[in-house]
Design a binder for these strands. Structure first.
Lengths: 363, 363
DNA sequence: CAACATTGTGCAAACGTTTCGACATCGCGT
DNA sequence: ACGCGATGTCGAAACGTTTGCACAATGTTG
């Protein structure tokens, strides 16, 4: 499979690669001196440094990263791996934000970002482990793994630098950065219960083998409990974070007895739900309040504008990357399960005139 | 900057890395034999192969990619670089699709994908060149570069494998994969002119230093010309592919004389425009038709549902990657400027009852 | 003026892999 | 029985870098 890439290539019209030897020769010094000069070591004289730097510039020398990595036993790269099964779980806009934060942090540290969509989870040697063992990267960020994914445990046990994106409450030894989805979803639900007095709330959940979906469900229940409203399992439908899934789930809910509101676990499903209501000739928020989660950019321009919960996912990515970089640099900080706060963004779809309420976290 | 990453790390509790030497020792053969055995060379006997493979499995040996790359002078990675200035140009959903196609193709060939958001374009040695010269990747895919970006020419001249995403009509020597935006936008505009008889059409353009925006503008003009409608430059506003930009541009247009329709260069700007209309108490399509481009997932669930143009961007990514992989393998195919066809998706925002028309391309 | 500390440079080894050429060993034919 | 080709294995070199150590050159001190 991979082999044919390594077959010999036709000679390309490339200028021959400049190596440190060429630089050294041009500067009239030895290779080792050239190396030290470029690394700005104190052992080499100012004049020599000058000469070497000049030669390097003249040849537009760029150090070969394989050679360097081989010697340093460190490649200077981190891998972002998103399990293949979470293809739709990581809804696009959210994932892009994450990636933005990660690459920003990596760039600042001169570290390369490699992107890996791990194939089969049940594979004997999961993709991320192979990446680490093959020394393609010095550490990995695992995004949105299923709570059942036992590879995550193997990975953590391997001793390699690993950071997880998303809460992982039962793995206290792991470094995680996530969102306080529980608190955020609870606040969202409370808004419907408190400000609007709704009582019959339905919940379109995400895939419940993912912590984010579990947390949101928990938040939903917590809010109900606090308001003294009985939790009715028949009003909870598990779905998959997609519009289509939200659509289907909403259709199912609309078959049942009348509702006051639908609380969807993300914006896409909320959109799907609104679409489904439209099929039934219903309108949000007139007939039914609908709220979402994530506050993707389009939530604001939808009609009705969608009440949602926003969190800084760029920051999540950045923090996860920075923690990983610390680990890669050999520091051994205490594992921290960091949770970022959320903000409920009230718009029209819940029946409110637009306004904004802030909600901190327990963390 | 990058140096501190290479400072020595505290010894981590990692199992010592297994090298080919360990495998060879365990199998009772020499290193070179072990190497050939794992590569399945014909020179080595079946029994030896068996033994080596067994040893490798027992030690869960994974070849070190730096060592391999150094020897092979080929790292087995491609880089996706998106110029920093096009931060918003590559609107999120589109970029994700692209990335999906690229990683899929790369994975199938056992090639790693590295993600590079190039900093300053005017940098002396642009990020992508450094990646190639430093041998971090064997080739690059440049996504959405400005037509003015002279680095692209340097890159092409460098002789390294390069593929561009997006048309590049005046650089026939480059390998490009793009969308027939001209044809697609022309078809979209024709729909408004033909099916609806609209005459006063405004265009919210993308940044006109990008080919996609130029093509759409051309398509817009071509459709007008063909319908015998005069082109009025005052009805064209250049924007930046963002919702906010579309909002502002639409406000500007709404100041002027009455319009029949707004043709936005992407969906986000169309959403922004609809939002702006709402500010003025206007409604689409009642008062004004609005159409977008890209057919992002949410276009279907908006209210009104957005008439748009869809293209297979996953396929664009895949084709670009496959072409790059050919180049990386040493093949020297003729440079091809490939353009994928588009389809106009008619929905409610132009005033139509939903239906679907297909539109091929000139290509 | 000799011995010594200091400063700057070079040599060589090592990182892990692949491949080239040399070299045993064996079976075969003459 | 001897040589010869085939077969399978091994040692060594190379890819480009960094670094420990030895060493040359310089300047300083007794």
């Amino acid at each position: 499979m991979t082999t044919h890439i390594f077959e010999d290539a036709a000679p390309s019209p490339l200028a021959p690669r400049r190596t440190l030897r060429d630089v050294a020769r041009l500067a009239g010094v030895s290779v080792s001196t050239a190396s030290m000069a470029l690394a700005d070591k104190s052992r080499v004289s100012a004049s020599t440094k000058q000469a070497v730097r000049q030669a390097a510039a003249a040849l537009s020398y760029v150090p070969n990263s394989s050679g360097r990595a081989l010697r340093a036993q460190r490649v200077g790269a981190l891998a972002v791996v998103v399990p293949h099964t979470s293809h739709h779980v990581f809804t696009h806009p959210v994932f892009m934000d994450l990636l933005e934060g990660i690459t920003a942090a990596a760039n600042e540290h001169g570290v390369t970002t490699i992107l890996s969509t791990a194939p089969a989870e049940h594979d004997e040697a999961p993709a991320y482990l192979r990446i680490l063992e093959g020394r393609q990267a010095d550490g990995v960020i695992v995004a949105s793994a299923s709570v059942r994914d036992q590879n995550v445990d193997r990975l953590a046990a391997s001793g390699y630098p690993v950071t997880l994106v998303g809460r992982r409450p039962h793995r206290p030894s792991l470094h995680c950065v996530g969102i306080d989805d529980l608190g955020g979803f609870q606040a969202l639900t409370e808004h419907l219960l408190g400000a609007h007095g709704h009582r019959r709330l339905a919940h379109i959940a995400g895939p419940l083998d993912h912590q984010s979906a579990i947390d949101k469900h928990e938040g939903f229940r917590a809010a109900l409990a606090q308001a003294g409203v009985a939790y009715d399992p028949s009003l909870v439908v598990e779905s998959d974070y997609s519009q289509e899934g939200g659509h289907a789930a909403a259709l199912e809910l609309l078959e049942g007895p009348a509702l006051d509101a639908i609380v969807a676990a993300n914006d896409q499903m909320a959109f799907g739900a609104i679409e489904a209501m439209r099929d039934h000739g219903l309108d949000a928020p007139r007939d039914l309040a609908v709220v979402g989660y994530d506050d993707i950019g389009l939530a604001r321009v939808m009609h009705p504008q969608l009440t949602s919960v926003c969190a800084d996912l760029v920051e999540v990515g950045r923090l996860a990357a920075e923690r990983l970089l610390e680990l890669m640099a050999g520091k051994q900080p205490q594992p921290v399960q960091r949770e970022l706060p959320t903000t409920v963004i009230v718009r029209a779809s819940c029946g409110c005139p637009p306004e904004r309420i802030q909600r901190g976290t327990t963390a």
